[in-house]
Amino acid sequence: MGQLIFNGLVTGLLIALPALSLALVFSVLRFANYAIGSMLTVGAYLVYAFNAGLGWPLPLAALAGGAVGAGLALAIDRLVYEPLKGRGGVTLLVASIGVGIALENAVRFIAGSSTRGFAVEVARPLRLHGLRINQEQITTIATVLLALAVVWIVFRFTRLGRAMRAVADNADLAAVRGIPRRQVVCAVWVISSVLATLAGVLVGLDGNVDPQMGWNYILPVFTAAILGGIGNPMAAVAGAVVLGITEELATLVLAPHYRTMVAFAVMALLLLVRPTGLFAAQGTAK
């Protein structure tokens, strides 16, 4: 039981990064980014290229992959989302579906469909108070907590963070207050893609790197973001942890391959009962 909750916590933290990324884009650009899964996949492959291809150590490769991924996200914004600005959330959503298809298949075209793994040494799991803890789980926890702390600090205490929250809250008023929307949007894409890349690395460490990997996470990621109240970035993290633990506990009664169904059931239930999300703050919601 303790082991399950711990595993669920780690799974949840893993989902938290892309869920935060999704909610961040939604809160500022006002559309559901269905390319989030492909961004995760592309990030994992970029890091793989630096790690296995050039032989760089994983942390360095992750930095380089994050930078290239951010550049790619900015280019996509310039080419796709910026020209479609103001055409409504559904049009942007469909465009992101197109972007997702294109990205995933660009990966397949270049890297092929076979599964790969990062070049890391296999370490023995730790034992702590009866819990079995993998090396990857420790890496996941440390990376995610660090990333979340950085994002939180940026959000709370920096000029950029205030600008992002202001645009998310009321874009017209932000314009009147002299906040340059374009710069905020670019910052959002950089953060969003770096989070997706990090998630890609962690998913790849946990399992394999393959072109489907991001796709498999779309449903839990959206569920986590909806749990938190989509458009509420930090609550998406809480949603992810709740979902991770629920999924893990559900393996007590359901076969493990049905975890996606658990995510779907949680989402369906939530949408019927409390569509604003579990953690949406009362009163300040728009």
């Binding site: 465009a95 197109g98 298809i101 995933e104 298949n105 660009a106």
Partner: peptide
Amino acid sequence: RLFLVGAGLV
């Protein structure tokens, strides 16, 4: 082919 579908869609 699918890459072109995605890019074409956009």
